[in-house]
């Protein structure tokens, strides 16, 4: 009997895990963005003395984890599980980061939704009594994503206005079975929704229906009212996706306009930084959560937040074969109170 389930897609964590520390590391462009003061480490260049961008991305994951460990005075030995994911083929950034860490490892892929996927599973492991402390981490890197999903960096092509800029960054969070919060209290796991978008330069439109679906389902399942939240924030819908998501959610009878934003919009100043529609990538919601949201919650400026990382589950092969881009979104409730 699944006693902790609410409605069709949500669970209530009866022993809500506490987020005891986070670590965030970003690239130079993110370090010039509006949230720069919230990040723990800002890199001077996106190669970081490594031989390849892939190596740099993996190193960022390790550094984000170590930052979080240092802040909480813990070592690798204290951690029961590592839940990690990234965007590269066979999630090599996470696998290679875990190679350097002596922590039992679950590798995850949910495209850019991986941050809340890892936090969901980490929270369940802690709440279920399977672990006392777990680390959840994801990363993305503009240059590794660009060469895997799009064009060579030096190719003189024009980026469409709907394109998004993959965030270079990694965010990690340590969840613990005891401490004083903030807590992960609810998890709403999304279904894959495919609105039939073929344009890989318009990820926001491909993912917005999935985000809307998960958010609406969260309210139906959990019984929360919109006023219960201080902030509802999606992962990387960016400007176009945000507009669509708001529209779709409104059609279902929920008006979240006043408390809703998107990590991809917050992390860059689109006009000044020429990022077109906004930020994207696993690292986008990871660093905005580990930097901005977590720190604002500790200060008490935010008390209950719904974090909804959004992912597009396509590959360059599927796109070339004419497949549309399916979207996914997972939501978690982070609250300063145990409820």
């Amino acid at each position: 009997m699944a006693v902790k389930r609410l409605g069709s897609q949500t669970i209530l964590l009866k022993n809500p895990p506490s987020i005891i520390a986070t670590g965030s590391i970003v690239g130079p462009k993110e370090g010039e963005g509006p949230l720069r003061n919230y990040f723990d480490v800002i890199l001077d260049d996106d190669l970081k003395n490594e031989k390849s961008w892939e190596k740099c991305e993996s190193k960022m994951q390790i550094d984000a984890i170590n930052t979080a460990l240092n802040k909480s005075n813990l070592t690798e030995k204290d951690i029961d599980y590592l839940f990690a994911g990234d965007l590269l083929n066979q999630i090599i950034s996470s696998g290679f980061a875990a190679r350097k860490l002596a922590i039992p490892f679950f590798g995850l892929y949910g495209a850019c939704s991986t941050m809340t996927e890892s936090l969901s599973l980490g929270a369940m492991a802690v709440d279920g009594g399977f672990a006392d402390k777990v680390i959840c981490v994801t990363s993305s890197h503009f240059s590794t994503a660009e060469r895997q999903f799009r064009y060579p960096l030096e190719l003189g092509n024009q980026r469409a206005l709907t394109t998004q800029w993959t965030v270079t960054g990694s965010g990690a969070a340590i969840l613990s079975s005891e401490d004083k919060g903030p807590f992960i209290t609810h998890v709403t796991t999304g279904k894959v929704v495919d609105p039939g978008i073929n344009d890989v330069n318009n990820m926001g439109a491909a993912m917005a229906p999935a985000a809307a679906d998960t958010i609406v389902q969260h309210f139906k399942d959990s019984g929360f009212k919109i006023d219960d939240y201080d902030l509802i924030i999606t992962g990387d819908l960016a400007t176009i996706g945000k507009e669509i998501a708001l529209d779709l959610i409104k059609k279902e009878g929920f008006d979240i306009t006043s408390i809703y934003t998107d990590c991809g919009i917050e992390i860059f100043d689109n006009k000044k930084q020429d990022t077109h529609s906004g930020g994207s990538g696993c690292g986008c919601s990871a660093v905005v959560f580990a930097g901005y949201i977590y720190k604002e919650m500790l200060k008490g400026n935010l008390n209950r937040v719904l974090l909804v990382s959004t992912g597009a589950l396509h590959s360059p092969t599927s796109v070339q074969q004419g497949e549309s881009v399916p979207g996914i979104a997972h939501a978690i409730t982070i609250s300063n109170k145990k409820d």
């Binding site: 996106d46 961008w53 503009f142 660009e146 060579p152 030096e154």
Partner: peptide, 11 residues
């Protein structure tokens, strides 16, 4: 050129 130069990331 590809032997001499290394690619740089976009600004």
């Amino acid at each position: 050129m590809s032997v001499i130069f290394n690619p740089k990331t976009k600004k």
